[in-house]
């Protein structure tokens, strides 16, 4: 059985928000290490991988590996019934056919305990092995800055070319009616304060769909920083780390000409 108690429902709400438009159904793989979700979108262009460490929960118990097949739309609805600061407990039995969620709140006049149950489903999905990759370029920047860049450029065109060079990282969008490019230079003062960093072994140029990057940027509410890892001709890794775990996205580049 699984019993996992989170100190704030907001974490799950934000995670669902950051995943549900890419993937409609997914297995929450629960084991003694924590809860993991890994799924590819229908078009096999993007993969999302979420990890919640057991240590990130107020209480965590999982006796044996348990895949919980979740319809993310249904879970989103059930989580909407929780207040952000409610204590949230997830429970499932070994037969994994029902997920129960309990929301507890203390207020000035009374304690409220709300209980919800949702049906789980059998999802036949291959677990994918993600190879360790030595990336040619690694860029860490404020997640709000990345959100703003991809949102702005998505107004101009469908794609963004990301160029990492000695100059810094440049985001370029060539739209039909307008184009734009944004250069972020390594700033000695800023890097000293650990606001961001650009590390590069060799120059990288890759082109990506902005629609996906805008979608990934929903994770900005989970972490103040985002890390972009790139090598030529391999998927981009967009990683957000938070206290209780991480969310990572892999995105296939656009190819050819």
């Amino acid at each position: 059985m699984l019993e996992a108690k989170l100190s704030e429902a907001a974490l799950l709400k934000r995670l669902l928000d950051a995943v549900k438009e890419l993937v409609s159904d997914a297995n929450f793989e629960c084991n003694e290490e924590g809860i993991q979700l890994q799924a590819m979108d229908n078009s096999h262009v993007a993969l999302v991988s979420v990890k919640l460490y057991a240590s990130g929960f107020k209480r965590y118990r999982c006796d044996r590996p348990l895949p919980l097949g979740v319809n993310l739309g249904s879970l989103t609805k059930v989580l909407k019934c929780a207040k952000d600061d409610d204590i949230c407990t997830l429970k499932a039995g070994d037969d994994a056919d029902i997920l129960s969620l309990t929301y507890e709140a203390k207020s000035a006049y009374a304690d409220r305990i709300a209980e919800y149950e949702m049906k789980l489903m059998d999802i036949d999905a291959d677990q994918l092995g993600i190879p360790d990759t030595d990336y040619d370029a690694s860029v860490t920047m404020p997640s709000s800055e990345f959100l703003r860049i991809v949102r702005d450029l998505s107004l101009l065109g469908e794609s963004v070319r990301i160029e990492v060079s000695k100059e810094g990282i440049r985001f370029v969008s060539d739209g039909e009616a307008a184009n734009g490019n944004i250069l972020i230079k390594q700033n000695a003062e800023a890097s000293g304060k650990k606001k961001g960093s650009i590390e590069m072994n060799s120059a990288v140029t890759l082109t990506f769909s902005l629609k996906y990057l805008v979608n990934f940027s929903k994770s900005s509410s989970l972490s103040k920083k985002v890390q972009l890892m790139m090598s030529n001709d391999v998927p981009l890794l967009v990683s957000y780390a938070f206290n209780q775990g991480h969310i990572r996205y892999y995105l296939a580049p656009k190819i050819g000409d």
Partner: peptide, 14 residues
């Protein structure tokens, strides 16, 4: 114009 690539081939089934 560039075509959208796929992830197939980058990850292996466990």
């Amino acid at each position: 114009a560039k075509q959208q690539g796929r992830l197939d081939g980058f990850f292996t089934a466990k």
